Amino acid sequence: MHRLLACLLIALLPGFVVAADENVLRIYNWNDYIAPEVLTNFENETGIKIVYDTFSTDEELSKAFDDNAPYDIMVPSHDSLPRLIKEGKLTSLDKAKLPNAVNLDSQVLSKLSAFDPQNIHAMPYLWGAVGLAINTPKAESAFGGPLPESWSVVFDPEQSAKLASCGISILDASAEVFDGLMNYKGRSISHTPPRRIKSAAKTLFAIRPNIRQIDSEEYIEALNTGDLCVAVAWTGDALVAADEGQPVVFVVPEEGAPMFIDTLVIPTNAARPDLAYRFINYLLKPEVAAQITTETLYPNANAAADQFLSAELRNMPGIKLDKQMRRRLTMMPTLQDDTQEAIDAVWAEFIEAPTPEAL
């Protein structure tokens, strides 16, 4: 780990230039979003060294793109693709260098093509949803009975107040949280003007005293150890907590929730696009995709990977979504600039608002 960090820091030094014959591949991915042995196996099989760095928020990734950070592969979510394509940040992929793309799920590719026409710039990696991770016995004990399958357990001040004592966490993911909030209010975030965003923010500030943390990384351990009873969470993080032995279930709220597809892209400033193609093609192997899903508990976009998953994993709720869950999910939209700016302004205030411990 120290060696990888040192390599990254050296790469960021002014005047640093990668030698043309240096087989070093630099990757920027979400935290806890790959099987470590996949990196090791690729290095052993190819002799290519990997510098692997992670982020936990869309803002971190966006800044890396804006700063032309020295990565050969990055992992943006689908709703970021239109902006990145418009700004010329992404390489047009040479499909001849990605023969394993034949394994990809046609339905996932179709959904992705609405954001990347003809799937020219991005390959789907993992996908999932934002919903509620509920530690059932802890939550029901605090709530006084079964919880509704609704965003109300977080966004209704009276309901969330009942759960504050056992711990509520919200992702540090402003657009996704607002998507859930607007669904709760019976609206679509893609058709919500900035003034309504500011009005809806009153709900966020009303529940802020009931929220223990706003976080997209440390909350995972809190779920795994039973220190939270309700979290607005990514699919896989909820399933990992259950896999760790916690009585945690993943719920897609009845009002609707955002679905995401995370993608593999090659930035236009990549120093080694040749190595990037080799790694992306490696990840598109069915057995490798299955290995990553087994480790992360996020569904992959590889239609041929199911045969390499255990029967238990193939049928796990959240990995295999039932019809009711699918009906409740919609693709996270790309937001208009003025809507995103309004969300960002509200979110900055929300994060800085007093925590329960400070009250």
Rank of each mutant, 00 (worst) to 15 (best):
A35M: 10
A35Q: 11
E37F: 13
L39G: 04
L39V: 14
T40H: 07
T40K: 12
N41E: 08
F42W: 09
E43M: 11
E43V: 07
N44T: 13
N44K: 14
E45A: 10
T46F: 04
K49N: 15
I50Y: 05
I50N: 05
I50D: 06
I50A: 01
Y52I: 01
Y52M: 07
T54H: 06
F55G: 03
S56F: 11
S56E: 09
T57L: 11
T57P: 00
T57A: 10
D58C: 15
E59C: 05
E59K: 15
E60Y: 04
S62E: 15
A64S: 14
D66Y: 09
A69D: 09
P70N: 13
P70L: 10
Y71Q: 01
Y71E: 01
I73D: 02
I73V: 03
M74L: 15
M74T: 04
V75W: 07
H78W: 00
D79T: 05
D79A: 15
S80I: 04
S80N: 04
S80Y: 00
L81Y: 03
P82C: 03
R83A: 09
L84H: 01
G88M: 06
G88N: 11
G88D: 09
K89Q: 07
K89A: 08
K89Y: 03
K89T: 00
T91E: 12
T91R: 13
T91P: 08
T91C: 04
S92L: 14
L93F: 01
L93A: 05
L93H: 02
K95S: 07
A96D: 12
A96Q: 12
N100K: 08
N100W: 03
A101W: 05
V102I: 13
V102Y: 11
L104A: 08
D105M: 01
D105R: 08
S106K: 14
Q107V: 06
Q107G: 05
L109H: 03
L109F: 00
L109A: 02
S110P: 13
K111Q: 13
L112H: 03
A114V: 01
F115A: 13
P117L: 08
Q118A: 15
N119D: 08
I120D: 08
I120N: 15
A122M: 00
M123W: 04
M123I: 14
M123R: 03
Y125M: 06
L126C: 07
L126E: 11
G128I: 05
A129L: 07
G131W: 07
A133P: 08
I134P: 06
N135R: 10
N135P: 05
N135Y: 01
P137Y: 01
P137M: 03
P137K: 05
E140K: 09
E140R: 02
S141A: 11
A142R: 09
F143W: 04
G144A: 04
G144H: 08
P148Q: 06
P148T: 12
